[in-house]
């Protein structure tokens, strides 16, 4: 009696959804040069998916503990603006600038972690608050022109520009994504910390009984998210070759949506980094494909929203059916 495990089924479904979407856009938006289904565009899709996927690693950790992080977009902007300040006002080398950027990201994550794990502010409210805090800090340190108006800060350091490119079309951001996703998956599946994340998310009580430090597990997940946010910010500013206060506006929902599409339950205790990465590819395909449909950009938002609702409803009904089946099976079979 070989049945696919539920997790494997879920993985197949996310991949299936991604393929269906690709096929859909191939039919609707065509293939060939300049069209949706061309090697250049598909690489572009993967490139677009990279930053959400990188940050998705941290966000996945957080969601597995049944938390959430709404501050990733703002933290990204803060990291970017910090680096812009160093770029504009100091002569520090490129590497130090990136290092400080990463430290700022870690600090944001640590602050989130303290607010949630130590001060016991509910995840949603806590990160909603830090979301406005980080955005405001970004504005406070934003660089102004002679008239005191906030300007977009160009960052054209050669090494920075280099970071936005790649080996041919194999962008460095894609490489970084692959490396970080793999490390994330390994941490999740092959270390005690990863096991602890699932335990905390599935049952705090059981985790405590097994001697797991629940608060620390949560806190570290937010710090890791801070790190991935910083990496995402470095690549985003490198690609834009500038830093603005608007970076990451409304971004925070991207990695969360990616995680949900990829089978990470918001209730915690399930899903993995690979799933979120597939979800990020799904979301990037969606954005890109809709753009390639040659219709008013406005419709893109409508279609995006409808597809997300459709996916979520599909996911909920599928899960309800599986749960029911598993329950019936359990009641009927008992032990084999």
């Amino acid at each position: 009696m070989k049945r696919l495990s539920q997790t494997a089924m879920r993985r197949l479904i996310s991949i299936g959804m991604l393929l269906v979407l690709v096929a859909l856009f191939t039919i609707l938006a065509g293939f060939g040069q300049g069209k949706f289904f061309s090697s250049a565009n598909l690489i572009e899709v993967v490139r677009d998916a990279s930053v959400p996927a990188i940050i998705g690693v941290g966000v996945t950790f957080v969601i597995i503990t049944s938390g959430i992080d709404l501050s990733t977009g703002s933290a990204m902007a803060l990291v970017g603006m910090t680096m812009a300040n160093i770029y504009e006002y100091t002569l520090l080398p490129f590497k130090v600038m990136v290092l400080i950027g990463i430290l700022v990201g870690l600090a944001c994550g640590l602050f989130n972690g303290i607010v949630i794990a130590k001060l016991h502010v509910p995840e949603f409210i806590g990160t909603l608050a830090t979301m406005s805090i980080y955005r405001a800090l970004t504005y406070i340190i934003a660089i102004k022109d002679a008239n005191g108006v906030i300007k977009s800060q160009p960052m054209t350091h050669s090494q920075y520009v280099w970071l936005g490119t790649g080996v041919g079309k194999f962008y460095y951001v894609i490489m970084a994504m692959i490396v970080i996703v793999l490390i994330g998956q390994i941490v999740l599946k092959y270390t005690r910390y990863g096991t602890n994340l699932y335990s905390v998310g599935a049952s705090r009580k059981a985790a405590t009984l097994s001697g797991i430090n629940v608060e620390m597990t949560q806190l570290i997940a937010y710090v890791i998210t801070g790190f991935t946010v910083a990496v995402g910010a470095v690549f985003t500013t490198a690609r834009l070759q500038s830093a603005t206060t608007a970076i990451g506006t409304d971004f925070e929902f991207n990695p969360i949506a990616a995680a949900v599409v990829g089978g990470v339950a918001l209730s915690g205790g399930s899903g993995d980094v690979i799933g979120t990465t597939i979800g990020a590819l799904f979301m990037a395909t969606l954005e890109n494909g809709v753009r390639k449909l040659d219709m008013n950009t406005s419709y893109q938002y409508v279609i995006k929203g409808i597809i997300i609702i459709a996916v979520v409803i599909f996911d909920a009904t599928y899960k309800a059916r599986m749960d029911k089946k598993a329950k019936e099976q359990g009641a009927k079979e008992g032990l084999e």
Partner: peptide
């Protein structure tokens, strides 16, 4: 979250 995107799109349309 999803309808947020839909309403935005509709307003833009």
């Amino acid at each position: 979250f999803a309808t947020q995107s839909i309403f935005l799109g509709l307003a833009m349309v």
